[in-house]
């Protein structure tokens, strides 16, 4: 069975080719989509390759697309549906990485790391600090999927009081196991010192956190978004940061790359990262392993995991 793997050229393609030769001898690796036609039955790609109707039309035998990522926004889903092609992603291989990134952002704010770093670079030696401990803080997690659970697990060792909201409440034994207490969204927003958002982008969650929700939050609380930019109303967030002293950790943006002329980038108490919370050396290795494993299931005639279409 022919497997076509399209990789962005900045990856170590020669090394990957050697690996593929060992584990999937029928796999062919390309770094572009400029072929006229290809007889692949399986297409493996990252989010860096746009899989549109045109590309799909040049793969007449295509039966399965495996995206080596949690997201698959780069795939034209209507085109995939019309050809009845199976589409799979790799969810949650980055849950550890995102959970750690959230904690890193929270700690960076609590410990004033950015401020101290900048002061020292300026030749100053600040002796006063309002640094705080993470231990004892109320940490509110919105969305208790794979990443939310992993974050809750990690937080156990930091001594936080962890609360959560999810439209589907966990079983009592799961709450007990993770040391979690459930609250309605508004209550969670009001109680939390730190809030981390872990919801998927759906029509229901677009602008899920807006002016009303920011108004409920404690002044000076920390708000972290590593899910999707569109889940938060950016203008309301900027206002809350300015008026309520809310500190933010932002990994995702409504538009990526964002408009750097936005007021968001004029604010002092925000830590930014470029939608990279889930990207670590280790998470990439997990994505590769899970991708290979899932494609091999399909090639062997088994149902692959993580089918989204």
């Amino acid at each position: 069975m022919k497997v076509l793997i399209i990789l962005p050229p900045f990856l170590p393609v020669d090394d990957i080719r050697k690996i593929i030769r060992q584990i999937l001898p029928d796999g062919e690796i390309l770094t572009s989509t400029d072929f006229t036609e290809h007889n692949a039955e399986v297409l493996v790609a990252t989010t860096f390759t746009r899989i549109d109707r045109n590309l799909i039309s040049r793969l007449p035998g295509l039966k399965m697309i495996q995206i080596s990522s949690t997201g698959y926004d780069n795939v034209d889903q209507d085109a995939v549906k019309s050809r009845k092609i199976m589409l799979c992603n790799i969810p949650a291989a980055n849950k550890e990485s995102v959970a750690e990134h959230v904690i890193a952002m929270a700690l960076a704010h609590l410990k004033n790391l950015i401020h101290f770093h900048n002061e020292i670079l300026k030749g100053n030696w600040p002796v006063l600090t309002n640094s705080m401990d993470l231990a004892g803080k109320t940490f509110g997690i919105i969305g208790m999927g794979a990443i939310g659970r992993k974050l809750a697990e990690r937080l156990l060792y930091f001594g936080t009081n962890t609360i959560y909201y999810d439209p589907v409440r966990l079983q009592e034994e799961d709450e007990e196991f993770l040391g979690l207490k459930f609250y309605a969204l508004e209550e969670l927003l009001a109680k939390s010192d730190i809030i981390s958002l872990h919801v998927p982008l759906t029509p229901e969650t677009r602008n899920f956190i807006a002016g009303k929700q920011f108004n409920i939050m404690k002044d000076g609380s920390i708000f972290i978004n590593t899910s999707r930019g569109e889940v938060v109303d950016e203008a309301s967030m900027i206002k809350a940061i300015q008026s309520k002293g809310i500190r933010a950790g932002i990994d995702v943006y409504t538009q990526e790359p964002p408009d750097f002329s936005s007021d968001l980038f004029r604010l002092d108490n925000v830590i930014f990262s470029p939608h990279i919370a889930g990207v670590t050396v280790e998470s990439q290795q997990r994505f590769i392993t899970e991708t290979v494993s899932n494609v091999m299931k399909y090639v062997q005639g088994l149902q692959p995991l993580y089918r989204v279409l």
Binding site: R21, Q22, I23, L24, P25, M296, V299, Q300
Partner: peptide, 10 residues
């Protein structure tokens, strides 16, 4: 269990 990869190729 059975996996598609050949055993120690090359």
């Amino acid at each position: 269990p059975y996996l598609q990869s050949p055993l120690l190729p090359g």
